[in-house]
Design a protein around this nucleic acid. Structure first.
Length: 260
DNA sequence: AAATCCACCAACCGCATTGTC
DNA sequence: CGACAATGCGGTTGGTGGATT
């Protein structure tokens, strides 16, 4: 794949957007839609690259953007989702209407990491078990960034990034998703019944550890479980966020561990 | 009042993924 | 099926403004 020449080399403008540029972009998108971002700046008369226009629109100018500080509820949601998804900001943003991945990423780095650190320190000082301790251990060394504890790439790029400990006995879904967990467990059981033979888990562990492709059975379970989830579990939708990938994988691993 | 530090966040960069021919 | 274009995504940077010295 060839990379587009950078804006500067093309004589295009970089840096902060002016109100005039914003107006032009808004006008154009409102009347014509964005369609092809690469052609948009030329058609709209902007000296910007398409990438810059897309970013400006999606992160700032979109009419459905919610401006202003994040509420405590939103922050908690981000924390919970980050526990499950890691640094998959777009997936997190998909579950926070009006918030962009960029905004969430910024809030995470500037506020939430600090907040979690403080909560962690307070919990340690008080010697009181904190339900965020799991989160803190993630936060300090960012294990979500790559799926290292899974031994590397699994079967799809979406599954590569979660190493969260969502399992059938996990604490990470305790706050608001007890029912979801139950549904997921049932979906899991439905999905895997009849599909798992005696070699399944050893193949799973082996493919996990060896960073190799999944077995056919494993992929069949994946597919079955995901379609089962999509029909049985409302809130955990299949909107392309990849969240279910993390869930089902970790649930399978949880089931495996419980089994042993 | 000036200098320095720090937090915030918009925007950029480069890689990955998806779509099209 | 491979090459290329378009788009998406996450990490990072750099400008700005407020706080502190």
């Amino acid at each position: 794949m060839g990379r587009a020449p950078c804006c500067e080399k093309m004589g295009l403008k970089k840096g902060p957007w002016t109100p005039d540029e914003d107006r032009i972009l808004i006008n154009y998108v409102q009347h014509h839609g964005h369609g092809n971002w690469r052609r948009l700046p030329k058609l709209a008369g902007l000296l910007r690259c398409g990438k810059s226009c897309r970013l400006r629109w999606t992160n700032y100018l979109r009419p459905d953007i919610k401006r202003g500080n994040f509420s405590r509820e939103e922050e908690d949601t981000i924390i919970q989702l980050h526990e499950m998804l890691g640094n998959r900001w777009s997936a997190i943003a998909a579950r926070l209407p009006g918030r962009t991945d960029n905004e969430i990423k910024n809030v995470w780095h500037t506020h939430l990491k600090k907040r979690l650190r403080k909560e962690h320190e307070a919990a340690v000082l008080d010697n009181v078990p904190s339900k965020r301790l799991v989160t803190m251990s993630h936060t300090n060394n960012e294990p979500h960034a790559k799926c290292e504890s899974h031994g590397g790439p699994i079967s799809s790029p979406q599954t590569q990034q979660s190493s969260s400990s969502v399992s059938l006995s996990s604490t990470t879904t305790e706050d608001n998703s007890g029912n979801d967990n139950k549904c997921i467990k049932e979906a899991l059981e439905d999905a895997i019944s009849g599909l798992i033979d005696e070699n399944f888990w050893s193949e799973l562990v082996s493919s996990d550890d060896n960073n190799s492709a999944m077995s056919d059975d494993f992929l069949a379970v994946s597919s079955e479980f995901q379609s089962s989830l999509s029909s049985n579990v409302g809130p955990w939708d299949m909107n392309g966020s990849g969240m279910v990938d993390c869930f089902w994988y970790d649930l399978l691993k949880g089931a495996e561990l419980a089994d042993v």
